[in-house]
């Protein structure tokens, strides 16, 4: 059990993850040049989770901890998924009622940005 004597791992792992994070960050930055759409949003989420996974698993050493701790930390945020999911539905509903009753323009686009 490695954690008993602290988290000692070869430096090469960190360098690999470090480089990996740079690459994935570059990729997620690149999504900005894609058209809005499922593809782009999917990639944003994918790269986000890959990066988050690397950080939590390797840099924060969660991967090397015992399952007792891993589960204790990863299960509670499930409650957040419920919150996010329901608030997504809820906010869509609010938006629809606004369009419906206040006659606001659902297709309005933001004004162009001039620096």
């Amino acid at each position: 059990m490695s954690s008993e004597v602290g988290q000692q791992h070869p430096l090469s792992i960190y360098f690999a993850v470090w480089v990996g994070l740079f690459i994935v960050s570059g990729l997620s930055y690149a999504t900005d040049f894609l058209q809005d759409g499922l593809m782009r949003w999917g990639l944003i989420l994918l790269f986000m989770f890959v990066k988050a996974g690397y950080i939590v698993a390797i840099f924060m050493h969660l991967k090397y901890e015992r399952w007792a701790l891993i589960y204790a930390l990863l299960l509670p945020p499930g409650a957040l998924l419920v919150l996010v999911g329901l608030m997504w539905m809820e906010s869509d509903y609010t938006w629809l009622t606004r369009i419906e009753y206040f006659g606001e323009d659902p297709y309005a686009v933001a004004k162009p940005v001039v620096h």
């Binding site: 409650a79 419920v82 329901l86 539905m89 809820e90 509903y93």
Partner: peptide, 17 residues
């Protein structure tokens, strides 16, 4: 953690809730 909106039945939230 998944019962909270029973306080909001008359608040005008999403009808499925």
């Amino acid at each position: 953690f998944i019962v909270w909106a029973h306080h909001m039945y008359v608040a005008g939230m999403h009808p499925y809730f």
